[in-house]
Design a protein around this nucleic acid. Structure first.
Lengths: 222, 222
DNA sequence: TAAATTGTGTTGTTTTTACAACATTTTGAG
DNA sequence: CTCAAAATGTTGTAAAAACAACACAATTTA
């Protein structure tokens, strides 16, 4: 089956064999699309009726408010999904931009079919629903964590909380972040030059060290 | 059945008749608890193995960081749930406080049972799972919206975006918000006195008017 | 009802941030 | 390799926010 190598690595289709996937592909009205780096996959201007599963490459979710300020919600990697917020929505108008950050292969699924279990042909649909629920719950946790980050009262605390989190995730005081400085500023919703100043100060104080996307936490403040 | 009047009004148990609920009660290991106003229902200090469904009264979810700053994540009303983030988590340590804002009745459910469909006795379990998924997706949308709110670059924009949203929800330029000013400041993650200053300024400019928790939007800025 | 607690608005001070402008460095495309 | 574009760090300035202290109003509770 087309692209099955990528499909079987995703969380939502883990444990599904190629035969069952064949049935699911029909049931979920699967389509594949390729995008070049920096190409817009979904935008608020062009409503989108499906749910997106990233199979290869990378993408970023951004929101732009009426003043033109960009909020980088998150970056997606293979196996991540986009459009979950609209799973149950009848008419689907995304308010976010999904943009490829690499050459990217995505799979589109019919959102109605996805959430509606069917007994006859694709017997594995109930597994998909449970996997889907797990992913949504994980996304939920991620959003709550980001909410707490943005609730910090100044840039220094945002940065330290973010770096601490990344350090815990990687299991080391040495780690790479998925953002460049401009993106990190958007992610933390602060001015880029202000972020640069804070990072420099933290380095001067010997709290952290960094080089491009590579960071090292030297002192863990209480 | 005990408290069925409240149960049938919730989203997750809508469409479930009393008989089926009886079976579900057993399957989900349901328990009921009463809390007085200001009593802590769940706290990070006391790990909690279940998922909470609010049946009567109200509650608020708060997060406190290491510096003691409080982030008011949201207020809950009857029918809302707490603990969804930990549905799939093995060992369950909540990092948030859930506090009753009124005299409150809650229902506790076994999280493992909730996400695991069973065929034999409680045939309605699949409906519950779909309802649950819908609630999680809605919570997801809520979190994304709040994220966008906190991404605004100053207090004025946060306030205006929040009030605009509330206005849209209520379908009128006159509406009540569920917070007092202190809570609103926590919700928007800004200093209370700074919020007060911004609100006064907006009133002076004739953009909004307000009295306690009642607001009126006079001019809708682009 | 009186007293205590909580909520609210105001003001002045200090700190932090956004913003703009700029010099370098790095990256990527042709 | 070369050139243009993008990323990065720095600085100064103006705006905004946090913070603290206070007065007074509203609400709760004993």
């Amino acid at each position: 089956m087309e692209n099955f190598n990528e499909i079987k690595k995703t969380k939502i289709f883990a444990e599904i064999c190629e035969n069952d996937m064949q049935a699911l592909a029909y049931c979920l009205k699967i389509k594949f699309r390729n995008y070049n780096k920096n190409e817009v996959i979904v935008s608020p201007e062009q409503p989108f009726e499906e749910v997106v599963l990233l199979l290869k490459g990378g993408a970023k979710i951004e929101d732009m408010d009426s003043s033109g300020n960009i909020c980088l919600v998150t970056k997606l990697k293979a196996g991540d999904m986009f459009g979950i917020e609209n799973l149950f929505a009848g008419d689907l108008v995304f308010s976010d931009y999904l943009t490829a950050t690499d050459n990217t292969l995505v799979m589109l699924m019919n959102k109605h079919r996805l959430i509606t279990p069917c007994q006859n042909k694709c017997k594995r649909h109930d597994i998909i629903i449970k996997n889907l629920m797990r992913m949504i719950v994980e996304r939920n946790s991620f959003l709550v964590e980001k909410l707490k980050l943005l609730s910090k009262k100044n840039t220094r605390e945002k940065v330290l909380a973010y770096l601490h989190k990344q350090s815990v995730i990687s299991g080391s005081t040495y780690f790479d972040i998925p953002f460049n400085k401009t993106e990190l500023a958007n992610y933390l919703s602060v001015d880029r030059s202000a972020l640069s100043t804070v990072l420099s100060k933290l380095r001067d104080e010997g709290v952290i060290d960094y080089e491009k996307k590579h960071f090292h936490i030297l002192k863990s403040e209480k």
